[in-house]
Amino acid sequence: MRLALLALTAVLVAGAADNGKILGSPTAPLRLEVYSDFACPACRTFHEQTLPMIVRDYVMPGKLAIVNHEFPLNIPAHKHSREAANYATAAARLGIYQPVSDALFRAQESWNESGKVWETVATVLSADQQKKVQALVKDPTVPAEVQHDVDAGTKEKISGTPTIFLVRGAQRLPIPFPVNYGFLRSLIDGYLK
């Protein structure tokens, strides 16, 4: 919830959101590209603990933008990950990626076991949004967009999630996980000087 509010503010500050998955100003000097899987516990930790601090300190002041990428792992324990990624991508097209991803991470254990992905997503959508998301998720361009992210991640030789890159111009720095926020802050501050 806190992240959703911060995110909403950040997007409003920026006034622009590319495919609905960019948090903050697209013209920010730095970008944090995050490849994650909604069923991955480490991704949840990053989303709920580290991301709010990054949003507060760097996204809201317009110094950094967060670019979310889907990377549903193709393993039996994550068999509903792709479905979750599809719903989140559909929601992103309506500009409601953050509340949906917050809900998916929050109820991760529940839908990952029961398979009730839609029921989880629906809890944060209005009736009108539910209809639109349901229609969008059937659009073949939505799973294609998810697959595009997976292909991009595979090209980057991603072996696990979350995989995070700090991008400055053409330079892409892989950030070791778990993220120590003190060191990450020192790194970002060094680049912003």
Binding site: L173, P174, I175, P176, F177, P178, V179, N180, G182, F183, L184, S186, L187, G190
Partner: peptide, 19 residues
């Protein structure tokens, strides 16, 4: 060739030493 903080985060991920 990279900022020292990246190596620091790698060392820190072993969760063995104080900051």
């Amino acid at each position: 060739r990279l900022p020292w903080q990246l190596f620091a985060m790698s060392i820190d991920s072993y969760q063995l030493l104080p900051t």
